[in-house]
């Protein structure tokens, strides 16, 4: 088991003939993901390393049974691409593209809700269930299969945390990049619910940051969870009113502060690491016994 994507996931890459799309399609294929098709309007009939390219997602679904899409198209075409994927009937849409207009993201999420589609991103590194399926741009050598679920708002910081966990012998069930934008398809609480239900996941790590209220919402849900949660939050040193790289990483009018998030999470029993590499030792503390007792 894993959440959202696994060995049954069949991926269509939208924007497969572009630089990013072709590079990462090959990387995903090399990792063992079932990349069954690519889409690039006007380029149907081509092939990329044996992956057939179509003009529409509809065709990729009909002919190749694609059930997940990953979007690499430029920001101004991303709304159309996402709506196309949702309309074509895939169940998961991963939007790697950054700098998508906020109103476009709202529109995409509205259609996804109506169709019951899980959107990951925008502005995400993707999602990976190690050993089963990788959809995204992450350096996959840092992951290993295992019992820890990770949900993160930022890419590189989550790589740092995942690599530390793998190094300490804790593999991952699924790692979900929520995306750095303000409006994203999956928030911490959505992913926590899925990890709570997933038998393979024994504990969860949240990699959060300043801005918004996703961590505070997560804290509310954690109170009723059976699985332990560890977190690391970035942005303690960030000044208010400044956008720290991500559209969503900004303390606006006194809201979304580091202190508010730490207080909420700690109040819910979450162990909050003071530096990124401390996550591994906290996971060891909260999971060590669970795992040993199961191995006996």
């Amino acid at each position: 088991m894993a959440i959202i994507v696994d060995e049954k996931t069949k991926v269509v890459v939208q924007g497969i003939t572009g630089n990013q799309g072709s590079f990462h399609a090959r990387q995903m294929l090399a990792y063992g993901s079932r990349v069954v098709a690519g889409v690039s309007p006007g380029k149907g009939g081509q092939e990329l390393d044996g992956i057939p390219v179509y003009d529409t997602v509809e065709e990729a679904v009909e002919r190749r049974g694609a059930n997940a899409s990953v979007i690499f198209v430029p920001a101004r075409f991303a709304k159309d691409a996402a709506l196309e994927a949702i309309s074509a009937g895939v169940s998961v849409v991963v939007i790697i593209t950054e700098r998508i207009p906020l109103h476009d993201a709202i529109y995409i999420m509205a259609y996804a809700r109506e169709k019951g589609v899980t959107v990951i991103g925008p502005n995400t590194f993707g999602i990976i269930s190690p050993g089963k399926c990788k959809i995204g741009i992450m350096p996959h050598q840092i992951y290993a299969p295992g019992p820890v679920g990770i949900a993160a708002r930022s890419g590189t910081l989550s790589y740092e945390v995942a690599a530390a966990l793998t190094g300490a012998g804790f593999g991952q069930s699924t790692v979900v990049g929520l995306g750095g934008d303000r409006v994203v398809g999956q928030r911490f609480v959505d992913v926590l619910k899925k990890f709570e239900q997933d038998p393979e996941t024994k504990g969860v790590v949240l990699v959060g940051e300043i801005g918004g209220s996703a961590e505070e919402e997560a804290a509310e849900y954690v109170k009723g969870m059976t699985k332990p949660v560890v977190a690391y939050l970035a942005g303690k040193a960030a000044p208010p009113g400044k956008r720290m790289g991500h559209a969503g990483a900004i303390i606006e009018r006194g809201r979304g502060t580091f202190e508010s998030k730490v207080k909420a999470l700690e109040g819910a029993g979450v162990r909050v690491a003071s530096v990124p590499w401390e996550v591994a030792s906290l996971v060891k503390e909260v999971l060590g016994q669970t795992i040993e007792s199961e191995q006996r």
């Binding site: 930022s154 890419g155 740092e160 750095g180 970035a234 942005g235 720290m244 790289g245 990483a249």
Partner: peptide, 16 residues
């Protein structure tokens, strides 16, 4: 640093 979260975390650790 590379990545927004990583850059923020770098500032935090520096300050620490």
């Amino acid at each position: 640093a590379n990545g927004a979260g990583m850059a923020m975390a770098t500032l935090d650790v520096l300050q620490r």
